[in-house]
Design a protein around this nucleic acid. Structure first.
Length: 420
RNA sequence: CGGAGUGUAGCUCAGCUGGCUAGAGUAUUUGGUUAGGAGCCAAAGGGGCGGAGGUUCAAAUCCUUCUACUCCGACCA
């Protein structure tokens, strides 16, 4: 894409009403726009990142048998009354609104009811199970106080998968697969090294739930990590009994701040019971379906990447989720420079390399460099009189300090290599 | 929800013990210059001070109220 046509511009000043690093950088670089506290719009650059993340999650969910669908945002009150979660006394973060004919609807704040209610129409026999359904969806929570930029929003985009299994054994097998899929996701978006499988309270039906906690000072959770075993315990269950049951030792656990980027949860019959979600087994007997839930907030994940991987000049996107792979900068008005950079741009485009081409005229080199660092695209290629005089193109990774000038063949070898 | 603070130009802010035509930087437009880290020179356009009400000869400056945002805490995950 031509940067001269990109309607967003970088800002020099930090927004006054943001303190969190993720929101500050994402707004300055033109990825998101703030509407209200905890409510952000995604601009072209930001949406590209969200879509990359979405595709990674989709691949991992499909790989373990997930079936994608899209449940409605406006939710039927009666369904939530069945599960007992309509009442404002019990759930204080509902957004609710009225229908013209007097009925009342709520805006989805979670998805168990929607999935369970749909699946009730289709689950009859043991032959129908297991089923794994998921969707990407905008979720609404009427938080009394939003904070931390896109880490905790009133409106956010998430993926939720629900598993419907015949029994505990079948559930547990899938649960472990989901755990691995989640590890894959966080590794692929570039924060695997900072993300710990964390034991948290499990509710009625399981001893633990599992959170994926990414270490960052911007996090709201306190966890205790064992760096050798690569697992952690959430403060909420940090007691001797739990530590011992996980065969950990208190002296090996380090207290850290972290943000919960995903969680997986065994639900047992908590929702199949109120929805009377049953199947007939081989003997014709009714059994309740065993459920599990598996969630990831995409905006939060994007914000976490920014929080953990940026530097003082801007964002550093991992290649897997960067809005573009290559940031091509042409410096100066020299005809030959413009010709070389434009032809390189066209060539890379023809090879399906995602390039942001800074073709803007009248901008100083310094401005282009500063913009490039702020936006954080993994590879920066500079075409200038100087680079051409020295034999070609300068290439520099965003994570590197110094670039090097190489010829076109060498450049293409680097840029056209398969990214995985 | 409790406590504290802040809303003035697209953005970041100054002005606020009331008083000339409301300012700066930045961004934008125009002209020139420069060309490897947000460069330099000059000019122009742009707001009536979050909304409503009030006090006053006079309100961005004082009062009331509403609203939005930020921070701390509670809540949530």
């Amino acid at each position: 894409m031509l940067q001269s046509k990109l309607f967003t511009k970088t800002k020099k000043e930090s927004p006054a009403d943001e303190v969190s690093l993720n929101a500050e950088l994402l707004i300055k670089a033109g990825f998101i726009s703030k509407e209200l506290a905890g409510i952000y719009s995604y601009l072209p650059l930001g949406l590209r990142v969200i879509k990359k993340i979405e595709n990674i999650i989709r691949e991992e969910m499909d790989a373990i048998g997930g079936q994608e669908m899209k449940t409605s945002i406006l939710q039927n009150k009666e369904i939530w009354e069945k599960s007992g979660r309509w009442s404002d006394e019990l759930v204080d973060n509902w957004f609710k609104t009225k229908l013209k004919n007097g009925g009342e609807v709520g805006l989805s704040w979670t998805n168990e009811e929607a999935h369970a209610n749909i699946l009730k129409q289709y689950i009859n026999s043991y032959k129908d199970l297991p089923i794994y359904t998921y969707d990407f969806k905008d979720i609404f929570r009427n938080e009394t106080r939003s904070k931390s930029g896109i880490l905790r929003g009133r409106e956010f985009y998430w993926k939720a998968l629900y598993s419907f299994s015949k029994n505990e054994e079948e559930h547990n097998i899938f649960y472990e697969k989901a755990k691995q899929a989640y590890k894959n996701i966080f590794a692929r978006v570039g924060i695997g090294h900072l993300t710990y499988l964390t034991f948290a309270s499990g509710g009625t039906f399981a001893k633990f739930s599992h959170e994926f906690q990414t270490l960052t000072g911007a996090g709201e959770d306190t966890i205790y990590i064992d760096e050798n075993k690569n697992i952690a315990i959430n403060k909420e269950v940090y007691i001797d009994e739990v530590i011992e049951s996980l065969e950990l030792k208190r002296e090996n656990l380090i207290e850290k701040k972290a943000i919960e980027v995903g969680n997986i949860f065994s639900l047992g019959t908590k929702y199949s019971n109120p929805f009377d979600l049953k199947y007939k087994n081989e003997n014709g007997e009714d059994n309740l379906v065993i459920m599990g839930s598996y969630g990831i907030g995409l905006g939060r994940l994007m914000g976490t990447v920014v929080e953990t991987l940026s530097d003082d000049k801007g964002i550093i996107w991992p290649e897997s989720i960067a809005p573009f792979s290559v940031h091509l900068l042409s410096l100066g008005k020299d005809e030959n420079v413009i010709k070389e950079s434009s032809s390189l741009y066209e060539y890379l485009k023809s090879k399906n390399i995602e390039v942001l081409y800074d073709d803007r005229e009248d901008l100083s080199a310094g401005e282009k460099f500063a913009d490039s660092d702020l936006i954080g695209i993994p590879y920066r290629v500079v075409v200038s009189k100087r680079s051409l005089d020295f034999g070609g193109f300068e290439i520099k990774k965003r994570i590197e300090k110094e670039g090097k000038i190489i010829n076109k063949d060498e450049l293409l070898t680097i840029l056209l290599k398969p990214s995985h």
